[in-house]
Design a protein around this nucleic acid. Structure first.
Lengths: 158, 158
DNA sequence: GTTACTGCAAACGATTTGCAAGTGG
DNA sequence: CCACTTGCAAATCGTTTGCAGTAAC
């Protein structure tokens, strides 16, 4: 199933189409970054990509990563997330479209969660004078670990 | 109706309760900022508050505004939004809870949109091992103005 | 009086930019 | 070859921090 979402060939094709359309060039840097984004199979950030590429003995500058992410966002292939003010993350749109995000505001943990009924409710919701392209649903609250921790703390205080 | 959402007294009371609970002090600066946030009746950002307060001949430093927003977020009274990478905005949670946000990715325009059925669907959606406190639903796409502009452009190109 | 709050200016860190060198078509 | 892409280092800009003075309680 996840093999289906992260289909490298389709993703590469889509990006190639975008480059052609905009008269931009293919390059080893762009191709390599895209492969790694696909390999990560989840949220990624600039630093993570940089480290990962370095580990694979492929050196790129931060500027090139920012440039590539910008292209992917312009191509409508990547979504930007900022679950907490401290960290900007990105995700392939083909993956992001399949789930909502559940964020613990106490520890910052993010998990993905699916619900077809809710998803189709949002997708089929029509807005006047607006073409719906994609959406993000973030649910904020407290995860069980933090709740447990908070209960402990309360007991200790009394 | 909006008078109901932006009830200054209730908002002030909630913030006073928070200050007491955390053993923090009331101050003219905090009180004034809160009043203006309430008056704005919509999204606000740091710069907007600064200018607005200056216009009302009330001088505050950026640091104090950031500090106040931090307190309000910690109190769970304010939500942070970043509809576009260029601008961070905030909104009173009591207002944000009443609508979803519809964002044009081409011109950056944000409008609010209500749908009770969708809202209750999200609110009543239970997640295992997680206490739902609030949520944000952003719908991204193209507004009618941008669509019109894009159609024009296409005609000119051919 | 003690402790918290505020303003100011300096520091910080993520992102962007300008430019020279490298590479794709 | 020419234009696009890249790396590097410097610039930028929103946000945070340290500290000295001020205000709550």
């Amino acid at each position: 199933m996840s093999a289906n979402i992260y289909d490298l060939n389709k993703i590469q094709e889509a990006f190639a189409r975008y480059l052609t359309e905009k008269s931009l060039r293919k390059s080893t840097v762009r191709d390599t970054i895209l492969k790694h984004i696909c390999d990560i199979r989840g949220h990624f950030d600039v630093e993570m990509l940089l480290v990962r590429l370095e580990e694979h003995n492929f050196h790129v500058s931060r500027a090139s990563i920012y440039n590539m992410i910008e292209l992917l966002m312009d191509a409508g292939m990547v979504v930007r997330h900022q679950f907490t003010p401290q960290l900007v993350q990105y995700e392939l749109k083909c993956a992001a479209a399949t789930h909502m995000h559940v964020v613990c505001t106490y520890c910052g943990a993010v998990k993905e969660c699916k619900n077809d009924k809710l998803a189709s409710g949002i997708t089929s919701f029509k807005i006047a004078k607006f073409t719906h392209e994609y959406h993000t649903l973030y649910i904020y609250g407290m995860c069980s670990k933090c709740k447990f921790r908070m209960n402990l703390q309360r007991k200790c205080e009394t």
